[in-house]
Design a protein around this nucleic acid. Structure first.
Lengths: 158, 158
DNA sequence: ATAAACCTTCCAGTCGGCTGGAAGGTCAAG
DNA sequence: CTTGACCTTCCAGCCGACTGGAAGGTTTAT
């Protein structure tokens, strides 16, 4: 049992902001921590690990709600149950679906890029942009929605 | 030039909402249209084509900001295709990053599932599980979230 | 003794891509 | 002449995942 740390130290160790950590507590992703007499939050190694897990799951596009459910499952591992297993299976299926769509879409994108690079000087002059006009399967829409969903707002700065 | 139409007709022809069309005008994706004496917006065939282009670009996963940039380049009679090619490369890289991460996470998730499945075999199936109720609930919510993600804008939960 | 570096809670704002509604003007049909 | 389908503008809100700031309390160092 190591030194208990305050929220700033936990933030420094995990790369999350103190704001985010308090927010996760609010959403029940983190348990309510012990407090000092003066009310400061106190964290230990388990919290570091929990935040590291959250970071991985988050990076993979799981919502905080999803992550909260998975963490609750983790807490209950001594007494797992069928319904929880079903939830996990559902998550796995979602991941597999996205994986499949994304692989297909990568192919389409790569093919479109290659053709376009070769034919860029010969594209129809009346179109706004020949590349876009050629279009892509509906699968791409879902896969890219996933992309936008996962990496929101990273494009805005210029 | 043939029949000028009002915004409702343009919406019907393109599948966009009138709200969305006005919003695109605000964001400079559409030029300011002519007006009737009473102030109604009047659109022509070019606007239909522009919205069709916007729809395709949206399917390719471009943001409205991306699309506006492409349209502005086009208006300046430059070659937006070169720009689009760069955007395509960016998308490809994003897809590759997601694929790599997603494969890693699938492994983690599968491991967790396996552990849970092993534990379940050593316990009666009717064992009390504190998260059953909310597990079932979360399943429904997650399914809805997934639907929304694939078909955004058709919401109605809670 | 005081500054600075922390910490607390609470409320508000951000982003994108819209949608909804209020309050009112316009237009064709019955 | 009224009904109802359209149109106008403007303001509000939604989703998720935070971030920013105000207003204050605590701890540590000089």
């Amino acid at each position: 049992m190591q030194t208990k740390m305050k929220i700033g130290e936990l933030a420094r160790r995990t790369g999350f902001s103190t704001k985010a950590i308090r927010y996760y507590e609010l959403l029940k992703l983190l348990p309510e921590p012990d407090r000092t007499e003066s009310g400061y939050r106190l964290y230990g190694q388990k919290d570091v690990e929990r935040l590291e897990f959250i970071e991985k799951a988050k990076h993979l596009g799981f919502s905080l709600e999803d992550i909260r459910d998975i963490l609750i499952l983790d807490e209950q591992q001594q007494r797992p149950c069928v319904h929880v297993l079903a939830l996990l299976d559902q998550k796995l299926k979602q991941v597999d679906d996205v994986l499949r769509d994304l692989k297909d879409f990568r192919k389409e994108l790569a093919g479109l890029r290659k053709e376009s690079a070769e034919q860029i000087e010969r594209l129809p002059a009346d179109a706004i942009c020949g590349i876009v006009e050629r279009g892509v399967h509906a699968k791409g829409e879902a896969a890219l929605a996933w992309l936008e969903f996962r990496h929101p707002g990273k494009r805005g700065r210029r």
